[in-house]
Write a protein that binds this DNA or RNA. Structure first.
Lengths: 196, 196
DNA sequence: GTCTAGATAGCACGATCGTTCTATCTTCGT
DNA sequence: ACGAAGATAGAACGATCGTGCTATCTAGAC
């Protein structure tokens, strides 16, 4: 995972991995029985890390807008902590396989849909609780929250400077602030109370 | 360029390129005298395409907020038109080399700084003309405009569905609308006229 | 007409790739 | 004690990689 997060899945070679962990090529090869399986299992392992390091802490916040903000912050923190030395493993995957065809492309697409879908779902819940403006398009807001996370990851990794993460934090804050429900009360608002 | 925009610069191999254009490996090799030069010249050629397809039309709009919006739209249009079959060449480069070291990483970092710097510069000009709120951080706004462009590129390429581009367009619209100068007049406003 | 520069081809080299086959050696169940 | 299962090593294969060397062919300069 560490190797692939820097060099990409294509750079994760059986020989290279063998050299890295200092055993023979055959020793590595025997564990995964093809390069494709090595790639698949690496992606799967990274998925579990992402779950533990981002989804689990991010979803621990109380339901509603707090949970949306918490998930975004969990992602930024995961970049900041350097969980993978090459930045977000899946952002790397996205760049490497977005334009190709094959099972890995499809897997990446499914993972991306899941991530955006989760954001959208949390936003809808926050709208149903009256915390976020029900007029805003939840898919659009999910996109606008995801975008600064992704860019913050790339620029932080590229510049080797975590200062860009603050840009991401501020962008998330601004997008959420702009989507807050118009009335101040925290209890459930009536469905037809919005003007224009 | 077409090959590298899909497979990445690492997939742009002398042998592969020779097969693609149907001449011998030596025939390709003689033009560039090393793989590194092939990579450098490909990046340089893509930079010229980007200039012609994005910067030139984007900067044709009149100075001010119109030019900021125009540059963003020029980028989205460049994705939409499929100038490169694998989406934005430089977004691909960003994902491939952000975590590595070496001359290509440095080149990518310089190109990214130039792009963000251009956005920031146009924003500052729009602020000086009184069209954008001078209170907003121009670097922050540049980040918030760039982020949806980048994500729209990746998701459009990944899903093979240009519908995501509309998410990007809407996000750019919203960010610019949120940064418009508070007073309605188009002429230069006094420096101390803003009420917090 | 001759000469030179450039484009292309063909071949060979050492390195690395994924993969297979055949040992060893350890570990553990019975 | 024995045997099965798994981890590792080593050698070899064909393919591809980047690169060098040596032709051949063509286009233009003089």
């Amino acid at each position: 995972m560490r190797l692939a997060s820097i060099e990409g899945l294509g750079g994760l070679t059986i020989g290279r991995l063998a050299r890295e962990v200092d055993i023979s090529k055959s020793g590595v090869f025997a564990h995964f029985r093809s390069k494709e399986r090595l790639q698949q299992e690496t992606v799967e392992a990274a998925r579990r890390v992402f779950e533990r390091e981002v989804l689990e802490p991010g979803l621990a916040a109380p339901e509603g807008v707090a949970r949306v903000a918490s998930l975004c912050e969990a992602y930024l923190s995961y970049i900041e902590r350097g969980v993978f030395p090459g930045g977000c493993f899946f952002a790397h995957l996205l760049g490497e396989f977005d334009a190709r065809t094959g099972p890995i492309h499809d897997e990446v697409a499914a993972l991306q849909r899941g991530w955006v879908g989760l954001l959208e779902e949390l936003i809808t819940t926050a709208q149903e609780r009256g915390e976020l403006d029900p007029e805003v398009d939840s898919g659009q807001l999910a996109f606008e929250l995801y975008a600064p996370l992704e860019l913050a990851n790339f620029l932080t990794t590229l510049y080797r400077d975590p200062a860009t993460l603050e840009r991401g934090r501020e962008a998330v804050r601004a997008s959420l602030a702009g989507a807050m429900a118009p009335e101040g009360g925290s209890s459930r608002a009536g469905p037809a109370s919005a003007d224009s």
